[in-house]
Computed example of a mutant assay.
Amino acid sequence: MPAADGGDSAPADAILPQAARLCVHVDGAVKNPGVYYLDAGARVIDAVEAAGGLTKKALTASVNLAQGLEDGQQVLIPSTDSTPSSSSGSHDGAGASDGAGAASIGKIHSSGSASTGNNLVNINEAGVEELVTLSGIGEATAAKIVADREANGPFASLEDLKRVSGIGDKKFEALRDAICL
Rank of each mutant, 00 (worst) to 15 (best):
Glu139Ser: 12
Asp5Phe: 01
Val63Lys: 03
Ala96Ser: 15
Tyr36Lys: 01
Cys23Trp: 04
Gln74Leu: 14
His109Phe: 14
Asn32Trp: 00
Leu131Thr: 03
His25Leu: 14
Pro84Leu: 04
Asp160Gly: 06
Val30Gly: 03
Gln74Thr: 15
Ser135Pro: 04
Ala14Ile: 11
Gln67Ile: 06
Ile145Thr: 03
Ser113His: 01
Pro17Phe: 10
Val30Glu: 00
Asp92Tyr: 08
Glu139Ala: 12
Gly99Ser: 13
Glu49Leu: 13
His25Ile: 13
Glu125Leu: 11
Gly7Ser: 15
Gly136Ile: 06
Ser110Ile: 10
Glu125Cys: 07
Lys144Ser: 03
Leu16His: 11
Asp169Gln: 13
Ala12Gly: 10
Lys162Pro: 07
Ser86Thr: 08
Ala29Leu: 05
Leu16Ala: 13
Lys57Phe: 05
Val164Pro: 00
Ser97Cys: 11
Gly127Ile: 04
Ser135Lys: 15
Leu175Ser: 02
Glu150Ala: 12
Thr83Tyr: 10
Val75Ile: 14
Leu120Cys: 09
Ile137Ala: 11
Ala96Lys: 05
Leu120Pro: 01
Ala94Gly: 10
Val26Cys: 11
Leu69Thr: 01
Gly6Val: 14
Ala40Gln: 15
Lys107Gln: 08
Asp148Pro: 00
Ser165Gly: 07
Phe172Glu: 01
Leu54Cys: 02
Asp148Arg: 09
Gly72Tyr: 05
Val48Tyr: 00
Ser104Gln: 10
Ser62Trp: 10
Asp160Ile: 00
Gly53Cys: 04
Phe172Asp: 01
Leu54Phe: 06
Ala143His: 00
Val75Arg: 00
Ala20Pro: 01
Gln67Thr: 07
Ala47His: 06
Leu69Pro: 00
His25Pro: 03
Leu22Phe: 08
